[in-house]
Nucleic acid binder design. Structure first.
Length: 383
DNA sequence: ATGTTC
C-alpha cells in the first residue's frame, strides 16, 4: 500500500509504479504547471500523458485563482454509465450495429419537448450549439456497449443497481463547441493567465464554465437516450461523472480550487476507468485518501501521440484486426485517422493503471467490464 | 478537444 505514490517535489505527487508507461514530457509538463502562481498541490495520475502545454491525467489545487486554460476547451467532459433492459443473451452485435444509422445527426423535433424541459430544469440558457447536442464528437469520445466480465464486489454492484446480465452503455463526451468557444473567448482576453477570485473575469468564466458542465451532462444524457432508442431498449443512468473541470474544494482546511484535467473525482461514489476499445473498463470504488487530490485516472491514458499512430499501425494490421477487437467486439469508425489514433496499441494497458491506483490505496475494483460494440463515427470504412 | 483546417 502506498508504494506507487511518488513524491516529485514538496507539492507534486505522481501515482505510478515502476512499470507504468510514463512520458518524460508529461512529467516535465506536470512540474512546470505546478510552478504557476498560487498553485499549491499537484497530483499526476497513472494515465498521465503529454497535452498541449498542460499534461492530461492530473489534478491541480490552487488557492485564490483559477486557470481556465488548464481546464482547456472540453469543459465538463466526462463519462455516463447506463444500464439497458436488454439481457446479454439476446444481444446480437451485428444487428446492434445496423440499428445505429442515425445517431450522428442533430436531434430532430421529436426530442424538442425533453430538451426544453431539461434546459429549463438545468438552467441551461444556450441554444447556439443545439446542432451538436446529443452527438459524440471526435478525439477520444465514444459511445460503447459493454458487458460485465468479472465481479469482485457483488454487494457494491447491487447497491449501484447494476445487474450483471444486462447490456451496459458507456458514453464519453463533453461540451463540444460550447466549451471551445468559452476557452477561446477567455484566452483572447486573458491569454493563459489565471483569474483572481472576486474579479469580474473570474465570475464571468465560472458562470460560463458551470453552464458548459451542465450542457455536457445533458449532451451525454441525450447521446445515451438516442442510442437506447436506436437499439429499441429502455435504460437508466447509473452515474455520470465529469473529469475535466474546476470546482471549489477544501484541502487540509484550506478553501481553494481543484482543476481536474482528465482526472476522475474520487469523492462522488463509484466510477469507471475505461481502457481503449480493445481493453477492459474497470468499475471501481474510490477509497478515502488525500494522496491523489480526491482524484483518479480517467482512463488508460495515451501511450502514443495522436498523429504518430497511423504511421506506426497502418502497415501492420489487417482490416479485420482494426474493426474487431480481441474480445470479439465490433468497432464502428469511419474516420481512418481516428481509427488509428484510438487504436488499442496507442493506449497504456488499463490494468497497469488500475494496479497503480490499487497500490496507492486509492481504489478497490468492483467489477471488470468488456466492450461489445464501440461507436466512434459513421463512414464508408465501417465494417 | 473543436458546428474541426487562418
Amino acid at each position: 500500500m502506498g508504494n506507487s505514490v511518488q513524491l516529485l517535489s514538496d507539492r507534486v505527487s505522481l501515482i505510478a509504479s515502476n512499470d507504468t508507461w510514463m512520458e518524460g514530457t508529461a512529467i516535465q509538463q506536470l512540474l512546470k504547471t505546478a510552478e504557476l502562481p498560487h498553485m499549491c498541490r499537484v497530483a499526476g495520475m497513472p494515465d498521465l500523458h503529454p497535452g498541449r502545454g498542460y499534461p492530461v491525467g492530473a489534478a491541480f489545487f490552487s488557492v485564490g485563482h483559477i486557470y481556465p486554460a488548464l481546464v482547456g476547451n472540453d469543459i465538463g467532459c466526462g463519462m455516463g454509465l447506463w444500464q439497458t433492459d436488454l439481457p446479454l443473451h439476446k444481444v446480437n452485435i451485428d444487428k446492434l450495429s445496423k440499428r445505429l444509422g442515425n445517431v450522428e445527426q442533430p436531434l430532430d423535433d421529436s426530442w424538442g419537448d425533453l430538451l426544453r424541459q431539461r434546459k429549463q430544469d438545468q438552467a441551461i440558457d444556450c441554444d447556439g450549439f443545439d446542432a451538436s447536442l446529443g452527438t459524440i464528437g471526435g478525439g477520444n469520445h465514444f459511445a460503447e456497449f459493454q458487458a460485465v466480465d468479472d465481479v469482485f464486489d457483488s454487494t457494491a454492484l447491487e447497491a449501484l443497481g447494476l445487474e450483471h446480465k444486462r447490456l451496459l452503455l458507456l458514453v464519453h463526451s463533453g461540451s463540444r463547441g460550447l466549451g471551445q468557444r468559452i476557452l477561446t473567448e477567455h484566452v483572447s482576453r486573458f491569454n493563459h493567465q489565471g483569474l483572481a477570485a472576486g474579479t469580474a473575469g473570474f465570475d464571468d468564466y465560472l458562470q460560463q464554465h458551470d453552464q458548459a458542465v451542465r450542457w455536457a451532462e445533458l449532451n451525454r444524457e441525450m447521446i445515451a437516450r438516442r442510442f437506447l432508442q436506436a437499439i429499441r431498449a429502455e435504460g437508466e443512468v447509473l452515474f455520470d461523472i465529469n473529469h475535466n473541470l474546476v470546482s471549489s474544494k477544501t484541502l487540509d482546511g484550506t478553501a481553494g480550487w481543484l482543476h481536474r484535467k482528465g482526472a476522475t473525482p474520487a469523492d462522488q461514489g463509484l466510477v469507471v476507468i475505461p481502457g481503449s476499445r480493445g481493453d477492459h473498463t474497470y468499475l471501481v470504488k474510490p477509497l478515502e485518501s488525500a494522496a491523489g487530490l480526491y482524484s483518479l485516472a480517467h482512463g488508460a491514458g495515451r501511450k502514443w501521440q495522436r498523429g504518430d499512430c497511423k504511421a506506426r499501425l497502418s502497415h501492420k494490421y489487417s482490416r479485420d484486426e482494426l474493426y474487431r477487437t480481441a474480445f470479439g467486439s465490433l468497432v464502428i469508425c469511419g474516420d481512418r485517422t481516428l481509427l488509428y489514433d484510438e487504436a488499442p496499441q496507442a493506449y497504456k494497458p488499463c490494468l497497469s493503471i488500475i494496479e497503480a491506483l490499487q497500490d496507492a490505496g486509492l481504489i478497490e475494483v468492483v467489477a471488470r467490464l468488456k466492450p461489445v460494440l464501440t461507436f466512434k463515427t459513421h463512414g464508408e470504412c465501417s465494417a
